[in-house]
Design a protein around this nucleic acid. Sequence first.
DNA 1: TCAATAGTGTCTATAAGACACTATGCC
DNA 2: GGCATAGTGTCTTATAGACACTATTGA
Lengths: 217, 217
Amino acid sequence: MTTSQAILTVDAVLLTLVEAELHVALIRREAEPFAGHWGLPGGYIHEQEDDSAKAAIARVLQAKAGVESPYLEEYGTFSGPVRDPRGWSLTVVYFALAPVVSGQVQMFPVHALPNLPFDHTQIIAKVLERVRSKASYSSLPVHLCPPEFTIPELHAVYEVVMGEKLNIANFRRKLEDLQVLEEIPGCLRSGGRSRPSQVYRVSKKYRNALSVRERGL
Amino acid sequence: MTTSQAILTVDAVLLTLVEAELHVALIRREAEPFAGHWGLPGGYIHEQEDDSAKAAIARVLQAKAGVESPYLEEYGTFSGPVRDPRGWSLTVVYFALAPVVSGQVQMFPVHALPNLPFDHTQIIAKVLERVRSKASYSSLPVHLCPPEFTIPELHAVYEVVMGEKLNIANFRRKLEDLQVLEEIPGCLRSGGRSRPSQVYRVSKKYRNALSVRERGL
DNA sequence: TCAATAGTGTCTATAAGACACTATGCC
DNA sequence: GGCATAGTGTCTTATAGACACTATTGA
């Protein structure tokens, strides 16, 4: 019995917010094919180190983008005989959200991406669609915020991700339903010359999980 | 450059309704490991024939279960060093819904499955969770019905899949919202000694897609 | 005290669910 | 005609969204 010769990889669409715009992390490819081109961070599974495909992409993201434990979720697979010039290939695509990144990656605004090899352009488009959809009924966007943030800040993040205005009064009420945030007592933040805002953090339960509403935010 | 040596497979959880109970298709494994045991239908990708992982599992389902074009959707991947005794492996899991099956598979009620090799027991549990959840806000269960069916029949299917009673008056209204069904004019079906019911079919647009509601059925 | 934003209260419109009612075929 | 199930109408209740209002700080 011979095992399949298909090329098996993992890739991630790592998203952060830079100056109130959604950005995707890209990296200069070191290896062929397409060495020197921008591409999604990803790579092969290391059978000795990785306990799962998810562990493999987490390792890559930590090494290349310095993100320690981002929100990380499987999107799905992309496969076929022509997407990689070397032959039949399958990649397991993840999406990751983090407040900041560092390291070798460079951030690009989602509306101004360079030309990308393989089917990476299509992958990013599909993932963004999913992320926007999921943002609309879950706590997903909190993972783009730093550890401590205010409701108005989070409200702005949701508006950026979803690309639409949200009534902040109703947003507050629905956020409360989600039960993802905990108040940091006595901690207020004054943005400018107006009334300071209460500071919150994500409650432990939801650091690596989502809270989902039946009916959107 | 060497490619990954991980074992790459595709597997399917094929669901049908038998006597008003959800059943899963299992097949006697021909090859090692676990030859002779019941397992999910699945196998390797055939690089010469298969244009994608989804095409690979469609080929397997047609060959082994006689299903021509079932509703077929990717669930996700299962991977790791220990799930297969031969070494590091990854399987792309699909779920499929069909009104009937034939061929080498045997149907088992979801609450009375035999012991299964690999992580197939866990895979089935996860997929069922997803299917039940998705049934609650989409037209997914129509793919368990034969090509022509009545609203009361479909209503019963939803109740079986979701495991709860649904008010049929409200169910009708919401079904209409989904716009998945088209009336077959003049075609009525008399179940017993009572008023016959209008017969419907799935409109072309939704034969291989789902219609989704924001707020459940 | 005023400007500015944080945060609350409340009204209205819409959708969900319960349930009573009418319709129609078979015996 | 009466029984059984198909199918409709409508009332009640919950939720979403709009928007006016109050609260609290810094300048």
